[in-house]
Design a protein around this nucleic acid. Structure first.
Lengths: 137, 137
DNA sequence: TTTCATTTGCTACGCTTGTAACAATGATCG
DNA sequence: CGATCATTGTTACAAGCGTAGCAAATGAAA
C-alpha cells in the first residue's frame, strides 16, 4: 500500500511545481522556464539562475521531467498535485493534530482565526459530506 | 499587529517543545532533560547528546529557557503552544490552500481520507460554530 | 560551417537541520 | 577540601536548502 517513498519537496521547490501543475491543468502539459520565471520567480524575487536550480533539483528528485520542444524545454510533472497535497496535508495533520482534521478545526475555531466566508463554506461542505454518507454510495 | 517575528522551529525541535508544553500544561512548569529523553528521545531513537543539541538550539532561538533547580535543569517554554500551533497552521493553509481551511477540507473530502469519526466530530464542531455565530456574542 | 546569442544544465557557497562526540560545570562523599 | 560522578552546555560534521554565478548545449545568422 505504501507508495514509492515520495521524495521531499522543499518549500521553494513546491512553488515551482505549482506553476507546472497549473500549466498541466490548463491543458498545456506543463510549463516552460519563461512561465515559471514570470510567475513563481517574479513573486519571490528569484533570479533566473535560482529558478533553474530549483528545476534542476526537482528533476534530480524525479518529480519533474523536461521535454525538448523546439529549442525550449517544457517541464512536465511526474507526480500528481493531488497526491502531493494529500501527503503534505496528512503529514501536517499527523505532526500537529494527531492526524485528525477535526482537532485542527477545533483549534482554529477557538482562536477565532477563520473568516465568516470560510466558515460558511465549511458548513456547506460538511452538509454535503453528510448527504453523501446518507445515500451510502 | 505583526508579532515579534517568531523564529522558525524545526521538525525535531518541535517534538522537544511538545514535551515541554505537556509538562507545563500538567502544572509542572515545563520538563526536565530526563522527561524529554524518555519521551521524544525514545520515540525517535535519538541519543542523549542529540536531545541536548535540540534543547540548546531552542534556547538560542529564545523559545526555551532553563531554570536551575537543584542540580537538574527545568526547561520552560517562552512561547505558547497555542500561538505556535496557530502560526504553523496558518502558514500551512496559506502555502497550500490560499489560507482557506474550507479548501483543505474539500480536498480531503474528495480524497476520502477522513475517518467517519473525524467527520462526525467535524459536523458537531461546525454546528457549534453556527450556534455561536447565531447568538452574536 | 563557423560564429553568436539564447536557453539549458552544473557547480558553489553560506546557513539550517539532523545527528552525535567532547568539554565544562556543579553536586556528592570520603 | 579535593576526587569523582552526574548533568549540562558547546562544538563538529555531513546532508539539504536557498541563493546565485559559470559552463555546456542548442538553435539562428552570416
Amino acid at each position: 500500500m505504501s507508495g514509492p517513498e515520495a521524495p521531499r519537496i522543499s518549500d521553494a521547490e513546491s512553488q515551482v511545481m505549482a506553476v507546472v501543475w497549473d500549466g498541466a491543468d490548463a491543458g498545456r502539459g506543463g510549463a516552460g522556464a519563461e512561465e515559471i520565471l514570470g510567475s513563481a520567480g517574479a513573486a519571490n524575487g528569484w533570479s533566473e539562475t535560482t529558478v533553474r536550480t530549483l528545476i534542476h533539483r526537482l528533476m534530480r528528485k524525479g518529480v519533474l521531467a523536461s521535454e525538448r520542444r523546439g529549442g525550449m524545454a517544457l517541464y512536465t510533472p511526474k507526480v500528481s498535485r493531488d497526491a502531493w497535497v494529500t501527503a503534505e496535508s496528512q503529514g501536517f495533520l499527523d505532526r500537529l493534530f494527531g492526524g485528525q482534521l477535526s482537532t485542527l478545526v477545533a483549534h482554529l475555531a477557538r482562536q477565532r482565526t477563520m473568516s465568516p466566508e470560510d466558515v460558511a463554506r465549511l458548513r456547506r461542505l460538511v452538509a454535503d459530506l453528510d448527504a453523501e454518507a446518507a445515500e451510502e454510495d
